[in-house]
């Protein structure tokens, strides 16, 4: 009986690994194919003549600097915008989540309903009005023009995750601090912040993923390479042949932007799982 389960689990293990990694292996393989190979058609999984050319082109190690210039600019934008949005969103969410987990105040329901509504919000339905507003406020095609909506859309998730974490914190310590004469604010800053740090970190990772991934707003609220992030830039990719999409370079760009994701996942997998599930189902 036990052995049978073991075999089933083994098979399941292999199936899951193949499921999750096959498409990734596929784009990695594509990124090592030559442009000529895909132009003439290459239905093979593995490259016929293995080449590093695409990486060289994208990272600016060849004479063709225009592709790499645009790609590296978008990579910079992606990192900058995601990191700033993450830091600001987590800061704001931490304050709100603390209040929600710990304090009684009027308007709590309003905040929570709004957060829930935004969590379900179809981002696309904001694209039109935001485009119009950003033009008026001169935020169209600027970093803040993306950072502000990214912060907003990650707030519900961050507040949710953080308040779940905050509930786990032994609050007696805060009360003890307050008995010792600390104000609510001091108790929050000195006692709770260090305890909450792991939760904050988890929220930050999830927030970063969102901002790193976001496409609709990046596509609609930017128009030059000074602000366009990688997902949007990828739909503007142009190869040496203006009429043929450079499949292999797209695949290479895909691999490069996936590397940070894989690094984060490798380092913090336990936290991410905890964060994802704590918000929805308390395990």
């Amino acid at each position: 009986m036990r052995q049978k389960t073991g075999v089933g689990t083994w098979i399941g293990f292999v199936v899951i690994l193949v499921w999750c990694l096959l498409p990734v292996a596929w784009i990695v393989s594509l990124s090592f194919k030559s442009l000529a190979e895909t132009t003439t058609g290459s239905p093979h999984f593995l490259p016929q003549d293995f080449t590093w050319d695409n990486y060289k082109v994208l990272l600016g190690m060849t004479s063709d600097k225009s592709t790499s210039h645009d790609f590296l600019a978008s990579l910079r934008n992606s990192f900058g915008i995601s990191i700033v949005a993450t830091i600001l969103a987590v800061m704001i969410a931490t304050l709100a989540a603390y209040a929600i987990a710990r304090l009684e105040f009027r308007g709590k329901r309003l905040v929570l309903s709004l957060a829930l509504a935004i969590a379900m919000f179809p981002v696309v339905s904001l694209v039109g009005p935001l485009f119009d507003m950003w033009r008026t406020f001169h935020l169209f095609n600027t970093w803040p023009g993306l950072i502000i909506p990214y912060m907003t859309f990650t707030l519900p998730l961050a507040i949710w995750t953080l308040s779940a974490f905050f509930r786990e914190i032994p609050w007696e310590m805060e009360q003890a601090a307050q008995v010792d004469g600390a104000t609510s604010w001091q108790a929050f800053r000195k006692v709770i912040v260090p305890l909450a740090a792991p939760g904050v970190f988890t929220a930050a990772i999830l927030t970063f993923f969102f901002a790193w991934n976001e496409f609709v707003l990046a596509l609609s609220l930017t128009s030059t390479t000074t602000t366009r992030t990688v997902p949007a830039q990828m739909s503007f990719f142009v190869g040496p042949d203006p009429f043929n999409p450079p499949y292999v370079q797209l695949a290479t760009a895909s691999v490069i932007v996936t590397i940070p994701v894989i690094v984060i996942v490798l380092l913090f997998q336990r936290r991410i799982v905890a964060g994802l599930t704590s918000g929805a189902v308390k395990g």
């Binding site: 910079r76 700033v84 803040p144 950072i147």
Partner: peptide, 16 residues
Amino acid sequence: HVPKRSRGGLVPLGHS
């Protein structure tokens, strides 16, 4: 100059 300008654009969001 453009990237510099966009970074400058973050000014209002700064806190400390």
